[in-house]
Amino acid sequence: MPNTTYFSPMVNVPHIRPEQTSKGSYITVQGLRAYTIGPQGKNAVIVAHDKFGLTPQMEQICDMIASQGYRVIMPYLFKDEFPYTRERALRESSKQCYEWFMNIVSSPSTFDHIHITMKKILTYLQSQGFVHFGVFGAGGGGKFASIAASKSDLFSAAVFVHTPWFSLADLKDIKCPVAILTSGDLEDLASIFFTPSINSLQMSPSSTTKHFPRVMLHMRFAEMKYGWVGSYGEWTNPYIAERTTEALRISATFFREHIGLKKF
């Protein structure tokens, strides 16, 4: 088994379950539908869903993060389009699904919409007394989470899981610590882009990347496939469920180490 033991024994994230077990509720924030769960306090995490939208799998991920004492909120991020469901993805070709989503992740108007949506959620959480924030994104949600983190100084930690749509522009303006967890089928992306680029930015930040986070965690789950954490996750497979739980424990540990504890 790969050495992915970066998590604290204090972080007792419940084991992911294949059946629907979400315990949160839906609210409306300035016209935005959002799933939320967790206690009142100072620390909150915003979750960016994958291309399937507000699914039971993403709800359960929110619950797992909230179990560590965070208020978690997951807003619906798409503009004017309905997300793919698993059923629709099975009916249509992967090429159609990919092209549909690439139109979203490459659209400047989408980025503006994501930024406005995240700003509304941050404003709402601040009005509720929250002062420290993290952001978590899975799959395409990692791209959306990176947009949020690069546009706001309020985040003190960001976690992106199996996100293949990054560019340096997405990362260079992020001022908080970042964790990136990649799957094995993104090996080429990890070896060609993530590792040398991250090392370069960390070791020799230029004037254009001076704000790049000095704390960076990059781990690869070599035997997992894209989407193992999220709506693609085949959690009926005990091993995949265990590895999903491990990824969430790593994420929770990273949040524990940085949210509200350090100022960048």
Rank of each mutant, 00 (worst) to 15 (best):
254 F>W: 13
157 A>Y: 12
181 L>E: 01
184 G>Q: 06
229 V>R: 02
175 K>S: 14
196 P>C: 07
151 K>V: 07
231 S>A: 09
166 F>I: 02
154 L>T: 00
255 F>R: 06
163 T>S: 15
250 I>A: 05
240 I>H: 02
193 F>A: 00
139 G>A: 07
159 V>C: 12
127 S>W: 06
216 M>G: 01
133 F>S: 00
262 K>S: 09
201 L>P: 01
120 K>M: 13
161 V>W: 06
123 T>S: 03
250 I>V: 10
134 G>D: 04
208 T>D: 14
201 L>A: 03
118 M>T: 12
160 F>S: 06
185 D>A: 09
141 G>C: 04
223 E>L: 12
257 E>L: 13
154 L>P: 02
189 L>K: 00
250 I>D: 00
234 E>Y: 15
186 L>C: 04
219 M>Y: 02
172 K>T: 12
220 R>Q: 04
140 G>D: 03
190 A>F: 10
204 S>I: 08
194 F>E: 14
210 K>A: 13
179 A>M: 15
205 P>S: 07
202 Q>H: 13
213 P>A: 11
170 D>Q: 00
164 P>Q: 13
171 L>E: 11
225 K>C: 09
198 I>A: 00
235 W>V: 12
242 E>I: 04
193 F>V: 02
234 E>G: 15
209 T>K: 01
257 E>T: 09
264 F>H: 13
174 I>W: 06
178 V>W: 09
206 S>Y: 10
245 T>S: 05
206 S>A: 10
134 G>H: 04
175 K>D: 09
215 V>K: 01
244 T>S: 01
235 W>T: 15
183 S>Q: 02
136 F>Y: 15
235 W>A: 10
127 S>D: 08
191 S>T: 06
148 A>D: 09
138 A>P: 06
219 M>Q: 14
218 H>N: 12
158 A>Y: 04
241 A>K: 13
194 F>L: 15
141 G>Y: 01
146 S>M: 13
128 Q>W: 05
259 I>A: 00
189 L>M: 05
246 E>N: 15
206 S>H: 08
136 F>R: 03
225 K>I: 10
128 Q>C: 12
211 H>C: 08
248 L>R: 02
227 G>V: 04
155 F>K: 06
230 G>V: 01
149 A>S: 08
237 N>K: 14
264 F>C: 05
218 H>G: 09
202 Q>P: 01
214 R>M: 11
134 G>T: 06
216 M>T: 10
141 G>K: 01
199 N>L: 07
212 F>V: 14
167 S>V: 01
255 F>W: 14
204 S>G: 00
197 S>P: 12
248 L>Y: 00
142 G>V: 05
162 H>D: 10
198 I>V: 11
231 S>T: 06
174 I>E: 08
176 C>S: 14
221 F>T: 02
244 T>E: 00
145 A>L: 07
184 G>F: 09
198 I>S: 01
260 G>I: 01
222 A>P: 04
